[in-house]
Each structure stands twice: as C-alpha cells, then as structure tokens.
Design a protein around this nucleic acid. Structure first.
Lengths: 237, 237
DNA sequence: CCAAAAGTGTTGAGTATACACCCATGA
DNA sequence: TCATGGGTGTATACTCAACACTTTTGG
C-alpha cells in the first residue's frame, strides 16, 4: 500500500494551518434502508446517474457538507433520494479503503435505516436515474463496496432484533402477534416457535395489548402496539 | 442546526466534477489505546501542542491522508505519537458533529487499540508536547469529544472481553491464570469466581497449558498461552 | 360444521452460579 | 511449619427449547 506523505504532522488534528488546501479524503454517508414488503425483507437501491459507476445500483448516499452531522447528512440524502423522513437510523461502520471508489478517496460512513412502509419511498429524484426496493436475498450487483455494507447491515439488523425492540420501526403502529412473528422469522431466516416467541417478547414488557382486534376470515387476532416507539435503547437480558 | 447547502447533488457520490474544490469536512482517526499496567487499566493520552486545544489532553490521532485506509491512518498516527506498531485495532464509531472541533469540521473515526506492554510507548514525538498513560478511572479533561470516545471504547472493551478472546492482546505471550483473571476483574470492575472463570475460559478452548511454571514466593503457577494470537473472531456461545 | 388461524403450559436439558477445602512452595 | 497464593468439584437455580391441543371466527 503506497501511502502518500503529503502534510506535516503539525496541526494535523484540528486541520487548521498550512495544510488547509492539501488534497484530503472526502466524507460520505450511505444508508442501507430496510423494509418488509409482502413478507419479504427488502432494501432500497438507487441507480447512479453520473460518475464512473453510472448505471449501477447503490445505496442512497452522498458527500457530507460542512456544518451538518453525519445523521443529518444521511437523512438529507434519504430525503433527496426518496422523499423519506423521520425514519430510524443507526450508524454501522465506516469504510475508508482508498480504492473503494475509483474516482476519488471517499470515506463512507454507512448507516442502517428502517422504515415501516416501503410504499412511502418515491422513486423520482433529480439525483438518481431510478430508485426501487429489491429483495435482500436477490440484490443486483452493487457499486463501490456496497455489497459489503449490505452484509454488515443485515448482520446488524439480525442481532438488533434478538436484543432490542428495534422491530417497532419495521411495523405499522398496530399489528398482530403473528405479524411480529413473521417479521422475525423473515429477517432471521428461520422458523420460530410461536409459544416461546410470545413468551420472550412479552417478558420484555414492551408491548401493550389494544382493545381492538383484527378481523379476518378466521378467528380475530388481538392487536398490539409498542409502548415506546421512540427509544430503542432497551436491551433484553 | 443550520445546514449549509453548498454543492449540487449531482456527482456528489464520487466527488468528481464541479464541486471538487468546495469546502468539505475533513476525516481524522483517533485511537483509544488501552493497556494494563500494575493491575490498572490505563489509556494513552497525548498533550496537544498546536491549535485551539493546545495544552489539552487527547487520544492520539490526526487527519487521514489520500491513499491510506482508516486502519493505516490510525497505525501511522500511533507510530508517530508513541512509536507503537503491530497492535490490535478495532474500529469503534465515527463522530461527525460539526462542533466537536471548534477549529474546523472534522469527522473522526474512533478506534480502540490494545497493547500488552505499556512500556513500549515512547513519549517523545515531534507532534505532541507530551504523552503518557492515565488510569481510565481518573482521566484528565479531554479535548474535543474525546471523553465520549473513551466511554465508547471502554464499553466495547468490556463487551468484547465477555464474548471474544480479545484479552490476548492485553497480555504477554505467556501468563498465569491468575493474571488472566486479574485482567478480567480489572476491566470489568467486578470480582470473578475463580473456579467458574477457569471453567468458562477453558470451555472456549483457546488456551494451551505450557510445560513451564512461573516460580514465585509461593506455589508455582502453570503458564498458559493463547493458541491463536492473531485471529480474534472466535466468539463464545 | 368445517377450515384456518389464534391462543395457551409443561417438561426436560443444559447452562450459570454459589460455595470451601487441599496443595505446593519459599521463607 | 507457616503464610500465601494455586488449584479443584458439586449442588442448585434458572433459562431455553421442544412439544399439541383447544378456541374462535367466517364461510
């Protein structure tokens, strides 16, 4: 790995001083956005419209601007790409390999995002040629190192499901126990025992049972809601 | 939070194009380096010699250069700061609040580092006024948001100790069981049951018992070594 | 009354915790 | 021989996984 030695170590921490206009890596954010649609785990991809990777699919993202936090940058890019706002975001990992983007050295801070309604994403944006949901199990070839990001995000989602109440961000405000269980089974890619699952979830004490029931062709199912939709910090065990 | 809207979203991903010379946040790395010294958990701080935070203590770090990975940047900074190399590094989190450094918008990728010999750090460096080990329980006031980094790092170290064989990076090549247990008790800040601890560690199968013994004023203790000092991916459970 | 999904307890296995005594050595 | 840290086993509580039948509704 040939490492350029461009700047003086002096004042390197603050970035002020003589080296202010030396070439520096740029910072970007990219978000792996998940949703459940018709019992399938999907994530949102945009088709790049400019640059060396034009035509390829990637996660929505872009350069961070001076003055905004990383979270703000990720939210701005998601809004620009798909008019989405107010979703759950969690920082995943930062990717800094200088060759990850052949065009320039861009360090990307990857985020995982969750949304309860895939239909809320609108694909028309100035920035991208297209945008749509893809099943996680069948993603197209991705630009840059975005397939690595996808793996990180999926692993994180799975582990968060096991330990936190993060599922509330993938479900509508009210839902049946069967829907919650289907969500878990879909994401974790394994069947769950209904009784054990119910016990585990109930032991967390995060759900409240509502008075209404969901009526269908068969026995009506009790509706539930998460007590706290905001805070995700509660961990089981 | 006032967000500047400087650049066009076009070609923002690759960073090539018209916006090439627009002001951008810089990328830095900072490393929270831990070692055990005389039964205490310590971390290495440097005293800043330039910039707005001159005189304050901080973790060693600095701007990432074009062409190097984040890991390489962290290692380079640690070498420059304390002539340390070949240590265990793990990425923690990226901090991007624009106000975290009053001098400029610097996004910092924080790392946790582990070293088995605190004495290997040499404090003389061109870049910093001083460098020394501080007990984690009694850190001085830190520059920037480095006290938040310290909390993240300590939490990560604790959880890694419970689930992985990461401890090998804080111990010399051979050690007694008592030393391993002291390490755990020190970092986790709670006493451990000697028999249960032994069983748990042995169940992981990561240690090999050596023929030699450590002789001291009392009964000699069996020496152990980690089977694999490199790979840290093995998780218990 | 039949089909289909909703709802509910118990048992056994394995894992984690609490706990106390003998051993080997140097001084 | 004594002081000091090294080394070992068992009994109990708890947690997790496996497992099947009854209930409620709409058609």
């Amino acid at each position: 790995m040939a490492v350029e030695t461009l700047n003086h170590p002096l004042s390197a921490e603050t970035g002020v001083g003589r080296d202010a206009q030396v070439a520096r890596p740029k910072v970007a954010v990219d978000t792996v956005l998940f949703a459940i649609e018709r019992g399938r785990l999907k994530c949102y991809l945009v088709q790049l419209g400019a640059g060396a990777a034009a035509g390829k699919w990637a996660f929505p993202g872009g350069l961070v601007r001076v003055g905004e936090t990383l979270d703000e940058a990720a939210r701005r890019e998601l809004y620009d790409a798909a008019r989405l706002s107010n979703l759950y975001l969690e920082q995943l990992f930062s990717f800094g390999d200088p060759s990850r983007d052949p065009g320039a050295h861009v360090v990307s801070v990857a985020y995982m995002g969750l949304i309860d309604d895939a239909g809320a994403a609108s694909s028309g944006s100035r920035k991208y040629a297209a945008g749509q949901w893809f099943e996680v199990a069948a993603l197209p070839a991705l630009a840059y190192d975005h397939s690595v990001m996808a793996e990180y995000a999926l692993r994180r989602l799975k582990s968060r499901l096991e330990y936190t109440n993060i599922a509330c961000n993938l479900l509508p405000p009210t839902f049946t126990f069967a829907e919650l269980e289907d969500l878990y089974a879909t994401v974790l890619e394994r069947p769950l025992d209904r009784r054990n699952f119910r016990r585990r979830i109930m032991a967390m004490g995060l759900l409240k049972r509502l008075a209404e029931k969901r009526r269908g062709p068969h026995r009506p199912a009790a509706l539930y809601a998460f007590r706290h939709r905001g805070v995700q910090v509660i961990e089981m065990l």
